Amino acid sequence: MSNLYTVEGQEQVAKRLCELTFADRVFFCNSGTEAVELAIKAARRYHHSRGDISRNQIITLEGGFHGRTLGALAATGRDEYLKGFEPRNPGFLQVPFGDFEELESAVSEQTAGILLEPVQGEGGVRTIPCSYIRRVRELCDRHNVLMLLDEVQTGIGRTGRLFGYEESGVVPDIVAVAKGLGGGFPVGAVLATESVGIAMQPGSHGSTFGGNPLAMSVAKVVLDIVSAPAFLERVRMASIRLRKQAELLVSMYSLAFDGVTGAGLLVGLRCIPPVREVVNMLYEQKLLCVPAGNNVLRLVPPLTVSDDEIDDAMRKIARVGKAICDMSVKRRKSLTDAAV
């Protein structure tokens, strides 16, 4: 079954997403990279439908990650992901992370949209300040540019709010979501305002499996659970516990860790030794973590994580931190002895 036909579940989930967010229209797909691809298409189509066909460039931030299809890779713009898949798709421009003046100067008559992640996961679990996001919204309004948010990782409760953009108080034009929306089942979606959504007329996009009945049944239950105020409050309390313990580890094991980044239950622990070595040591402790950019260890527990599970995980990270510090001290002593 495809979206050529009415799927009752799609209507129910789309209505719920619109009730919970800024959105007037929703299109369903199967993954985060598909959602980002559609977000890019929708931004270009919006301007094209108004006769401004020159507005086709998307500006993104260095360090971002938007997916592994060719359009999403071009939006990401990082050589390590593009190597071997050249030529890079045109129509994308990256500016330095956090440098608003560079972003402002990059906006031109060719700019269709600015695409941001509220927290850069792959880029080192770097949080974009709310003040920056608000300035981006003002910049977009001033130049008739669309604001696109990639909430594939931050959406559906990860930051302690249903969506990461809520913290800043802005109203985006397009938001790409996936991952958490299916609670483990493949599903993605693009949320858009009416003015953007109406530009995507029948035939301009499609998906055979996007929004299939099973995916919609899952997404409906996930939204009912995660959007509950008590659930989101629990996520916020868990994130406070996790962050405090991570900051304590930094103070205790300064030869292993030197900073904490992120938001909600998306936390980064910046490492002194190569992060992949830390990941492997934690694997031996039966704790699964993943690396991120800037030598950051990414901690992304399930939203249902308990206090006991947080405490257990941090004890294991503490053991690794102590082992790293002990090895560093021994190495320094050996070097000193050798010099003497």
Rank of each mutant, 00 (worst) to 15 (best):
L223G: 05
F257R: 06
E194R: 12
A256S: 08
R241P: 01
K286M: 15
P291C: 15
V260A: 14
G211H: 03
Y253D: 01
S251E: 14
G293N: 15
S204V: 06
N294M: 15
E284Y: 11
A228Q: 06
M281W: 08
P274R: 10
S195E: 11
P274M: 12
P273F: 14
A230C: 01
T261K: 15
G264V: 05
A263V: 14
V267N: 05
K244G: 07
V250F: 03
V260Q: 06
V222M: 12
V196K: 00
Y253N: 08
E284N: 14
K244M: 06
N280V: 08
L223C: 03
S251Q: 15
G184M: 00
T193R: 10
A228T: 05
L223N: 06
L248N: 09
G210R: 10
R236L: 03
S254K: 14
V226G: 06
V296P: 10
L255A: 15
S254Q: 14
L242K: 00
L232E: 03
G203F: 02
A192Q: 04
A215F: 13
V196Q: 03
L232Q: 04
M200H: 00
E277A: 10
V250S: 06
S251V: 07
L232F: 04
V279M: 10
V278H: 09
E284W: 12
G188S: 00
L248Q: 08
Q245N: 11
E247A: 05
I272E: 08
A230Y: 03
G183L: 01
Q285Y: 08
K286A: 15
M216C: 06
K244D: 09
N294A: 15
R276W: 13
L214P: 00
A238Q: 14
Q201F: 04
G206V: 06
T261D: 11
K244I: 03
D224T: 12
G268V: 10
